[in-house]
Design a protein around this nucleic acid. Structure first.
Lengths: 157, 157
DNA sequence: GTCGGTGCAAATGCTTTGCATTGAT
DNA sequence: ATCAATGCAAAGCATTTGCACCGAC
């Protein structure tokens, strides 16, 4: 069911641990790999899914790491640039982020009554994306698909 | 109350139903259909596409309507509840909104280099959505598909 | 030793809210 | 007449930034 054929260099990158991917990115930009940045990435890996900035701070505290809110946000920003995480925006309240590097993109279905969130993966969407990009001459990078629906166990009112 | 005369047949067709849909929604909630709310909906119809809160205010001013920022936001909120518009979130900076009622959903492709935005419509996405909902027993309401890509005219760096 | 990084607190900017006044029904 | 709606300005809140000190290379 896989729609994209990763190139060999992509495969190589995917197999490398995330931390070296991040380290490599930082080095390429002349930036430093600090303990705080390592701690933030560890906490994100530990959550392994959707997270928001505040939750990330809690996870860091839970693991006994003291990283300021500012550094946390600054690291999130770097991880976005590095393509290790992406934003997943559900509402205008706050941003959610998602560990994406080396993973198949996950799509989301949200219940409009209960707020229940279901993750799913549909490779055909990647095919649609690639076809549309090809038609317009664009180079695909990523995509997000969100379904708004009502779950079967939502109250009938 | 002075209803603005529609200037094109397209607008005339669209305006009547939308305004009654909104009026009906408000009545069902025991709320009032005020000139300010009508003006906001008119301005949204005039833009006929993606808009953000600040742009909406400019459109209102352009049409000679004085609606406060607060009322504008409050009306946007009501239109969201009524299912007439939906949020289209591209970044965590600010919300974008989209007139959706009675239209096929429009999807978006964003250039990650230039910020160029292209709208497209892909009916097969609706089919994918409906199939996934059916499989899980959910009732589909809407969906959003966003492609992140690089446009052909973006600088190569 | 050099810069870049960090933490803190203050700033930013979109969005929401309290309150006195206005207006739709 | 009644009670919701409006406008203004102030408040909220997630996120960003300025600055003085700290630490990775």
């Amino acid at each position: 069911m896989s729609a994209t054929q990763p190139t060999s260099s992509e495969m190589r990158q995917q197999m490398a641990p995330l931390c070296s991917v991040f380290r490599r990115y930082l080095k390429s930009k002349g930036l430093k790999y600090t303990t705080e940045r390592a701690d933030v990435l560890d906490a994100i890996i530990a959550r392994d899914g959707l997270f928001e900035a505040e939750e990330l701070l809690l996870e860091l505290r839970k693991r006994g790491h003291r990283v300021s809110k500012a550094t946390s946000y600054r690291t999130i920003s770097l991880l976005l640039e590095a393509g290790i995480i992406v934003q997943a925006l559900f509402d205008s309240k706050q941003a959610h982020y998602q560990l994406i590097y080396g993973k198949e993109p996950r799509d989301h279905m949200v219940c409009m009554k209960t707020g229940t969130l279901v993750e799913f993966h549909s490779p055909e969407l990647t095919a649609v994306r690639n076809r549309i990009c090809r038609e317009l001459g664009w180079t695909p990078v990523g995509h997000r698909f969100q379904i708004y629906a009502v779950s079967p166990n939502a109250p009938k009112t």
